[in-house]
């Protein structure tokens, strides 16, 4: 059984059909890249999976458990984490606190524990470990709102990982990153795959999307127009001409 299974999802905003019968399956330890032009429905699909948008038809399941109809916090606690197209920190919290506040249930086994100390040595160590893993340089005690855009993206990945996800949805994580940071991000994604996470990557940096993925899904106009291995998609002439551009072929 696939870890994440999206079946025939349709989303409409008034008269606009944003997604039409979209299917997506991701296994544990697999990276799937979702590519397509602006307005293709990539972020809408993330919004459906994470409970921000309810589909008019179709289902989303995590390990067989239905997600659609549940709130975003519940979905996050069940094991789906995401980042956002526009990086969204908690700007007045420190970098470290941005991660600590999202640390998963294992860190707070009982609701009353939330009235306990937030920054225990164990949680700080875990937060620092995650921030180091995603390549965000210290110091971690400055307000997150002071970080440059590239570092905010890395912080988002770190915060998403703090929720102990089974599935990680990355929405254009490389946007605004410099080359060394992109390379770092690529290594992080590869490590997450090795650890058994299912990763879905929405990325406008097509070479990165193809390099990092086991499978690629091409969306256009809210529909899946192609699916396959990076080589298969790279060789698909319609996709090349319409969406990837000949330079990437």
């Amino acid at each position: 059984m696939s870890r994440l299974r999206v079946r025939d999802v349709t989303v409409r905003f008034a008269s606009l059909t944003a997604l039409s019968n979209v299917r997506l399956e991701v296994d544990a330890g697999e990276v799937v890249s979702l590519v397509g032009p602006n307005g293709a429905g990539k972020t809408t699909l993330f919004n459906v999976i994470t409970g921000f948008v309810q589909p008019v038809a179709g289902t989303v399941r995590l390990d067989g458990q239905r997600l659609n109809g549940r709130g975003s916090a519940r979905i996050s606690r069940l094991g789906v984490a995401r980042t956002f197209q526009v990086a969204r920190p908690f700007p007045e919290l420190t970098v470290e606190d941005n991660v600590i506040v999202a640390l998963g249930r294992a860190s707070y086994p009982h609701p009353l524990r939330t009235f306990g100390r937030a920054r225990t040595p164990a949680r700080r160590e875990r937060a620092h470990g995650l921030l180091t893993e995603v390549g965000l340089p210290e110091p971690y005690d400055r307000p997150a709102g002071d970080l440059p855009v590239g570092h905010l993206r890395l912080l988002e990945v770190g915060r998403a990982l703090a929720t102990d996800p089974k599935v990680l949805l990355l929405d254009e994580p490389a946007a605004g990153l410099r080359e060394p940071e992109v390379a770092q991000l690529e290594r992080v994604v590869a490590r997450l795959r090795e650890r058994g996470l299912a990763v879905v990557l929405v990325e406008h940096n097509v070479p990165l999307a193809l390099r990092a993925a086991d499978r690629v899904i091409v969306l256009a106009g809210g529909e899946v127009i192609a699916e396959g291995t990076p080589d298969e998609v790279r060789a698909d002439r319609t996709v090349i001409e319409a969406y990837l551009g000949t330079a990437n072929a």
Binding site: T50, F52, G71, S72, A73, S76, R77, A81, R82, F84, R88, F90, P91, E92, L93, D97, I100, V101, A102, G104, R105, Y108, R113, T114, F115, G116, R117, A118, R119, R159, A160, A162, T163
Partner: peptide, 23 residues
């Protein structure tokens, strides 16, 4: 100092993001 205090601050800053972060 507490986790619930951090959560209050996070929700005040961005309620939607706080939910997506599992709060």
């Amino acid at each position: 100092r507490t986790q619930v205090g951090l959560r209050w601050q996070a929700i005040a800053a961005d309620r939607e993001l706080a939910g997506a972060s599992g709060i």
